[in-house]
């Protein structure tokens, strides 16, 4: 039985080892740049200047775009599957959507390059006609952009939002629904005023889990984001993300400072996802406890 304890303990040890390795292998840039690493915008390996801000910006912006698209789509589908669809149809569709979550990231990247990017080039004039007055949709569009990466990410995280939210909404006690219906509420009013508020913490948890996933997503973003370390106001401009720059530059990084700067970026990404994941778990736990 000792061996099962040892294996359980090894998980703590491995995680601690992981953090330790990330920490000691990123000493150089921390020593040299301190907090400026997170604050400056210049990423110039030749001059030995490493500022992570464009990558942090790109990571946050692509995830934000993904959430703007995926949250309404995901919560809407979850409501339909949990409240309206007949159980057999709901289970079948939920199964299909779970499969969507199993599709590897690199496949999404492949579809992103060859379908989404050409597709967006066609849609772009219409997008600009409607939203072109905002700085977000101004400037030239080459197909690869922060916006394209956000769209791919939204497709990747929607299944998580749907399947977790569906479970959470289903777990809302029937009394809630019956009470609202008995007061004369329509089906939609029941969902909106009685069911969703009850499930809100669980749904928020599912959104945070999805966010953590999209922040760390690598391949699909690398393939469509454009890989340009600049901060531009427009979503249609190419950008970069933390995970993408690690994927692209790690093998060709020359010199210890360069490699260690990339490892420090990994540490930043690790910290970001740990915080978001921790928040998500807390919310999910709170919603479980609220389920009397």
């Amino acid at each position: 039985m000792g061996i099962t304890f040892l294996c359980a303990f090894s998980i703590l040890a491995i995680t601690a080892y992981l953090v330790w390795e990330l920490w000691i292998n990123s000493v150089l840039p921390r020593h040299q740049f301190g907090f400026n690493f997170l604050r400056t915008q210049t990423w110039d390996p030749v001059a030995g200047q490493f500022g992570a801000l464009p990558f942090i910006y790109g990571t946050l912006v692509t995830s934000a775009v993904a959430l703007v698209i995926a949250v309404p789509l995901g919560v809407g589908s979850a409501v339909f599957l949990a409240e309206l669809a007949p159980p057999a149809l709901s289970d079948a569709l939920a199964f299909l959507i779970e499969l969507l979550a199993a599709v590897p990231s690199v496949i999404y990247g492949l579809l992103g390059i060859f379908i989404l990017v050409p597709g967006l080039r066609i849609i772009e004039p219409y997008l600009k006609a409607v939203l072109g007055w905002t700085p977000l949709f101004s400037g030239p569009f080459y197909g690869v952009s922060l916006f394209s990466a956000g769209v791919v990410l939204s497709v990747m995280i929607v299944p998580f939002i749907i399947s977790i939210s569906r479970e959470v909404i289903r777990a809302v006690p029937n009394d809630q629904r019956e009470a609202a219906l008995a007061l004369g509420a329509t089906r939609w009013e029941t969902v909106w005023d009685a069911v969703l508020p009850f499930a809100s913490r669980g749904i928020a948890g599912s959104i945070f889990l999805a966010l953590a996933r999209s922040l760390g997503e690598t391949m699909a973003v690398t393939m469509v984001v454009g890989n340009d370390p600049k901060i531009k106001a427009s979503l249609l401009a190419p950008g970069y993300s933390i995970a993408a720059v690690i994927a692209n530059e790690f093998t060709e990084a020359t010199g210890e400072l360069y490699t260690q700067s990339l490892i420090e970026l990994g540490l930043v990404l690790f910290a970001l996802t740990v915080i978001i994941n921790g928040a998500a778990r807390l919310m999910m736990a709170a919603s479980e406890r609220g389920k009397v």
Binding site: I14, E21, L209, G216, T218, I246, V274
Partner: peptide, 20 residues
């Protein structure tokens, strides 16, 4: 910690294996 480890981005796992 298991849940945290599950949420670690895969690219960070790559860095870990690289360093060790």
């Amino acid at each position: 910690v298991t849940d945290l480890l599950n949420g670690v981005p895969s690219i960070v796992m790559g860095i870990f294996a690289y360093t060790i």
